[in-house]
């Protein structure tokens, strides 16, 4: 059974429709990437899984519909989210930001904190710093760390490397890989650049104007002439 499955999902902002009949699935323990240009609907898709947009169609997690749940309930049922603008708490310390993430997962605070500090040692060194004074890369780490504090089995990460220096991108990529391999998390990332997505994901979905244009493994998509130029920077 797919861990996460979207069936004919439509998403709306008022009257404007941002996703059209999107269907996709993610297998347990897999990393998949949603690739698309600005405005393709990547963030909308992840927000929709979190119950933060108006949708029709079905969103199933382990076969059970989560459409009707509130965002907090979706988090509680095991979905962690690192959104594109991070949405951190600017005047709280790194540590307190992480502790808010533990709101529904209080019994595993110590073990989750240990995991986060192992993946991102910098967050332990900087635990008393307010996130408003942090760099983009550090904020991305806090954002991922906060998502991990919810004890997620499914992790959604919106453009994990946007605006980050190549070295930091590498660090984030390694951390995501370890979350999958060592923690057994199932991961969905979004990316503008298919080349970076390929280094992590086993399968890609290509999203254009809210529609899934293509899907497949990295090798399958690389052969697709229509996609090569736009997404693989040929």
């Amino acid at each position: 059974m797919a861990f996460l499955e979207l069936k004919s999902l439509n998403a709306f902002y008022g009257k404007a429709q941002a996703l059209h009949d999107v269907s996709l699935h993610v297998k347990p323990g897999e990393i998949i990437a949603i690739v698309g240009a600005n405005g393709a609907g990547k963030s909308t898709l992840l927000d929709s899984v979190m119950g933060m947009t108006t949708t029709t169609g079905d969103i199933l997690m382990e076969g059970k519909s989560i459409n009707q749940l509130s965002t907090a309930e979706i988090v509680q049922s095991g979905v962690g989210y690192a959104p594109e603008r991070f949405n951190l708490f600017p005047y709280m310390s790194v540590r307190d930001n992480l502790l808010v993430g533990a709101y529904t997962s209080r019994e595993s605070i110590e073990s989750n904190l240990a995991i986060v500090h192992k993946l991102f040692p910098k967050l332990k060194e900087r635990q008393h710093q307010e996130t408003s004074t942090q760099s983009g890369g550090e904020r991305q780490m806090v954002s991922l760390g906060r998502a991990l504090m919810t004890s997620p089995r499914l992790l959604l990460v919106d453009e994990p490397t946007i605006g980050l220096a190549p070295k930091v991108c590498g660090e984030i990529a390694v951390a995501l890989k370890r979350m999958c391999d060592e923690l057994g998390a199932t991961i969905v990332i979004t990316e503008q650049n298919a080349n970076f997505a390929m280094t992590l994901a086993s399968r890609l979905y290509v999203l254009e104007s809210g529609v899934v244009k293509a899907e497949g493994t990295v090798d399958e998509l690389r052969g697709d002439a229509r996609l090569t130029e736009a997404y693989f920077g040929a």
Binding site: M50, M52, S70, T71, A72, V75, Q76, G80, Y81, P83, F86, N87, L88, F89, V100, G101, Y103, T104, S105, R146, A147, M149, T150
Partner: peptide
């Protein structure tokens, strides 16, 4: 939004 995705209602 940050609060909601942390599981806070």
């Amino acid at each position: 939004k940050g609060a909601a995705i942390s599981g806070v209602d």
